[in-house]
Structures are given as C-alpha cells and as structure tokens.
Design a binder for these strands. Structure first.
Lengths: 193, 193
DNA sequence: ATAATATTAGAGATCCCTCTCTATATTGTT
DNA sequence: AACAATATAGAGAGGGATCTCTAATATTAT
C-alpha cells in the first residue's frame, strides 16, 4: 500500500548521533544529517517536523537507551550499596560500548534546544527525569540518607561521578582506560560508605 | 593621540560570557555580542580577528580566571589531604561567585572551536592544561598514589567531582544550594582517604 | 490494471551570520 | 590648524542553513 522507506528514523538519528559526537549539538543540522546518510533534505523533513524536533529526538533516544540499562543495574541488586556500585559501573561500561552516544550524554537537554521542544518531547524528558529522581530517592532512603546534602551525595555517587569519569576521557579525545569501570565502582563505594 | 575606545576587550568578553551562559557556545555570535553591548559589528571585528578568536578568548579568560584561585587553594596548604579539600571547595565557591563563567566551564575547549584556534590561543590552553596536570601529579605523589588509576582518582577528587556537583545545579537552572561547598569537601575527602 | 498512499527528490525563498570595506569621529602632537 | 593614530559606524556581499512546495516514484490492495 505504500512505497518502502529508504531512510528510516533510526538511520537518521544514528547519523545525528555521529555528527553530535564529532561536532557537538551545533553540528547537527538538517543538511548535515541529509548529507551524512546521502539523502536529500526533503527526506529528513519528511521524518522530522524541523530541527527542533530532530534535536529533541536524538537526545531523548540516547538518554532512554542509557537509562534502560541503568535502571536494570540499580534495581537488579538487593543490597543498596551493591546496587549503587552496579549503577556506577554501568555508566562507564555503557559509555565504553557506545562512545558516540556517550558523547551526547555529556551535554544537557538545554544544549539540544530543550526550551523550544514541543510538549510531547518535553513530557518524555520530564518523565525520564522524574524516574531517575525517584530511583535515587529510594536508594538514598535505603541507605539512611536523610538530609538534602546526604541525598545529593548519593545522586552524585551513582550518576554524576561516573559520568565525570567518562567526560574526562571523551573530552580529551581518548578512549576509556581499562581501569575505568573498577575506578568508578571504587569511587562510588567510597562515597556511599 | 587616539580616540578613546567605547567598547573594550573585557566589556565584549563579558557580553560573550552572558550569551554563552544563556545559550551555550552556539549563542556566541559576532552579531549577538555586538547587539548585547550596543555596538555595530565592525567594532567587534576591530577587537577580534573573527569568531574563532572571540570564542578562544572568552574560553581562555574564563579558565584562567578560574585556575588562578584554584592553584592558590591547592598550593596554600601543606598537608596534601587538606590541599585537595581546599581545591574542591574552591571549585564550588568560585562557581557560586561567578555563575555565568561557571556555566562556561561546564563545556570543553572543543565546544569553543578549539580545533580552529590560532597557535597563540592553542598554546595558552596547552600551558594551562599542563600546569593543572603537573599540580595534580604532585598532589598524587604526596598522597602516595602510584598507579594510573590511583592518580586518576586524585584528579577526579579535586576537579571533576566538584565540577559535576556544580553541573547538576547549573544544568537544571538552579542556584547552588548552601551545602554545596561542604558537600564537595566531604566527597573529596572520602575519595582521598 | 488501477487507485491509493508513503516516500523520495530537489529547487528555491528567506533568514541569519561572517566578514570586508569605506567613511567618519575623537584625541594628542606639532 | 593640520595631522597622525585609533576607534566607531554601518552598509553590503557572500555563504550556509532552515523550511516550503511541487513533482516524480515505488509499492500494495483491490
């Protein structure tokens, strides 16, 4: 009943990921994506209403990919300290397995034009944020972290710290060293002690 | 002997900082800076050879501002553990005092077009990087950190961790909470223990 | 075969940004 | 008063990106 697509959504988003990893969000233009996959610009506009939506979708797909395994790691353990360490390790391991997507994660939604996102994409972003916030809150409660500073320390331990370890290397244009997962786990353990 | 300037270097760089804090590096265009200070674009080109140089200068001035106090904090203490804690505290305190410049620090030189910088600016950036690297190496040695992972742990403790604490809040558009300096110091202490 | 439909294909209007160029203004010196 | 030096001032060419619009094309259901 219809012509089969030559350029599907994921193919275009993959190209956008490569461009963003190489040149930052500014490098993700409609024409750059079109050129990257060898399509005319019209085909890109057929999939995405505009650059705003493309940026939102590439960011959201990446974050949701990442979170999938992160939640699994965090919630797959009974002991809260072990859960935190597994989550930290996952941040690094996932980044090693997906270096280009990890490069995106080092930016923020703001850098992908969040202020102009349509409601649908803004909602997805909010739901993801809330889910992470709640998971961290449960972990903090299980660890007996009561005051805001203690809760924030947990959050840093299982998200920000391992990400900053990844950032050090990706920003310098290096691959992650072999000890990165172990180091992340150790540092997280130290913060959760 | 000459007409007095209406728009000096620092005034233009201040405007560039505001724009970068609000919209990221992409928001720093020659015309946006001109508009921000109320100058014609020609006056901006009179100070900076082009956008590449403007981006380099705004990044370098910010990093050098930051490093000034950071080195003082790190080297003002005899005991290495106290030195590391002072450095971590400084990262947060400086960010609180200069939130717009701190927003710049959350990016990397790459995002400010480092690949295209002229030699002068690239050299300044390299010298700064080396100075930080050497200071961290001395601290790590004083702490008895021998292998690469241990040295990296020190680096994370005194730079990346406190910066990621700042990033959490600035990326969310919030001010830094009152406990931030104390939390940074505690976390750094935990990693250096 | 034919109709319906999703998609490719790409030309072109419009906008914004970078950068150049020329003219003009202000100051200290002679 | 003329001049040299330094800045401001802003018009405009050139380039690239976004987005719209129309036409062509491939596929499937009937």
């Amino acid at each position: 009943m219809a012509r089969p697509p030559r350029f599907d959504l994921d193919q275009l988003l993959d190209a956008a990921v490569r461009l963003a990893a190489a040149s930052g969000p500014a490098g993700v233009t409609m024409s750059a994506v079109a050129k990257e996959v060898g399509a005319p610009s019209g085909s890109v506009y057929h999939r995405f209403a505009g650059r705003t939506v493309l940026l939102a979708e590439v960011w959201l797909r990446t974050v949701e990919h990442f979170q999938e395994g992160w939640f699994a790691a965090l919630e797959g353990e009974g002991d809260p300290r072990r859960a935190g360490r597994a989550a930290a390790r996952h941040v690094v391991a996932w980044s090693r397995a997906h270096p280009e997507e990890a490069a995106l994660l080092l930016y923020g939604a703001q850098d992908f034009g969040r202020a102009e996102w349509p409601d649908e994409q803004a909602g997805r972003a909010d739901r993801g944020r809330r889910r992470v916030r709640d998971a961290v809150a449960r972990l903090a409660a299980a660890l007996g972290a009561a005051d805001p500073a203690a809760r924030e320390r947990v959050s840093v331990a299982v998200i920000d710290l391992p990400l900053s370890l990844v950032r050090r290397h990706l920003r310098a244009g290096e691959a992650l060293p072999g000890h990165a997962e172990g180091l992340a786990e150790e540092c997280t353990a130290a913060l959760l002690a």
